[in-house]
């Protein structure tokens, strides 16, 4: 076991996969000589050269489209969004070509590519750099969407995403890059389509992902002291949702709280709620509750920003309220 910082876990995953498969390359803004804006690719260009760590001009839609072309013809590109928000400029290539082209082409081409980078609300970065794009992309057919949350799952999931033969949108979180965790010395991969049981419990199912997992776990400390036993599940796969794991938990606890950082309208929790109601209605003792960010552009001011995203105290309060009406 070696203590590994989050961004290095991602770097190790990239390095290992690049060493394993010469078709794997990284492209994006400042991924080469600069080492990536969060140092995920630091010094890899020294080992693999400028073509495999391709520093691109600031032209998101075009370099994302280039990655699609490279993937169609057998390479396995990883596109780094310096900030995932910038990929709004590449929405067409991600949607029409990465997501839909395999289907539209009747299976002529496959698109094995990963689009990864920091998403989420940081610390006072302002609206454009504090986006929650997972909700925007979830309707695109053909995309897999994954959100990592710990150094351990970041490494295992990124390796699997690189080996997957489909386009994978891989969300990291700007405030998690400095988390540390002991990682196994031996190689491991984690499945892209399985939720992670973070804490097994009996009273309520709390579904969350990315940085909100850590807010949830802060809340859980308080809830434990009050004798509440929540089950916490990290979704990991935002598309498709691991409904088997989720439904099994709902059958056990009969209550659901969803905690997310994306906006409430059309968010991941909105889709999740719909699927839970469709598939688990008879197991529910109360309507599922959503705690989402406010439906506003993320404000710069620190006080307003904290009001925009979900805080641990709100999670405690919402959990207790859901349990108050226990039969």
């Amino acid at each position: 076991m070696a203590e590994t910082i989050f961004f290095n876990a991602l770097r190790e995953a990239t390095d290992e996969e690049m060493a394993r498969d010469p078709r794997v390359l990284v492209m994006g803004e400042d991924v080469g000589h600069y080492g990536g804006s969060y140092k995920v690719t630091k010094d890899l260009y020294k080992k693999y050269g400028d073509l495999r760590l391709l520093d691109t001009p600031i032209a998101e839609n075009s370099f994302t489209g280039m990655a699609v072309g490279a993937a169609m013809t057998g390479l396995r590109p990883i596109v780094e969004g310096m900030n995932m928000g910038f990929l709004l400029l590449a929405f067409n290539q991600i949607s029409n070509n990465a997501g839909m082209l395999r289907y539209t082409s009747g299976g002529n081409f496959t698109i094995p590519m990963v689009i990864r980078g920091p998403g989420g609300v940081g610390r006072q970065l302002g609206a454009e750099h504090s986006q929650r794009l997972e909700a925007y992309f979830q309707a695109v057919p053909g995309l897999k969407i994954v959100a990592c949350s710990t150094p351990y799952n970041a490494k295992g999931l990124l390796k699997s995403a690189i080996r997957d033969n489909n386009p994978v949108l891989f969300f990291e979180h700007v405030l998690l890059y400095n988390l540390k965790e002991d990682l196994p010395d031996e190689e491991y991969l984690l499945p892209l389509d399985k939720a992670e049981m973070v804490r097994s419990g009996e009273d309520i199912t709390i579904l969350t992902y990315s940085r909100m997992r850590h807010h949830v776990m802060q809340a859980v400390k308080t809830l434990e002291k009050e004798g509440i036993d929540p089950e916490v599940i990290d979704l990991i796969s935002l598309k498709p949702l691991d409904m088997a794991t989720i439904a099994a938990s709902v059958r056990k606890t009969h209550r659901v709280l969803i905690v997310e950082e994306c906006m409430k309208t059309g968010g991941i929790a909105a889709e999740l709620t719909a699927q839970i109601i469709e598939q688990c209605f008879d197991d529910l003792d109360a309507p599922p509750v959503r705690l989402s960010s406010q439906d506003i552009p993320t404000p710069y001011n620190g006080i307003l920003e904290n009001l925009t995203i979900v805080q641990p105290a709100q999670i405690v309060e919402a959990t207790k309220k859901l349990l108050d009406n226990r039969i």
């Binding site: 839609n61 075009s62 370099f63 489209g65 990655a67 072309g69 490279a70 169609m72 057998g74 070509n97």
Partner: peptide, 9 residues
């Protein structure tokens, strides 16, 4: 961009 990426390949 797609064609440019194929040429890159």
């Amino acid at each position: 961009p797609v064609a440019t990426g194929v040429a890159f390949q």
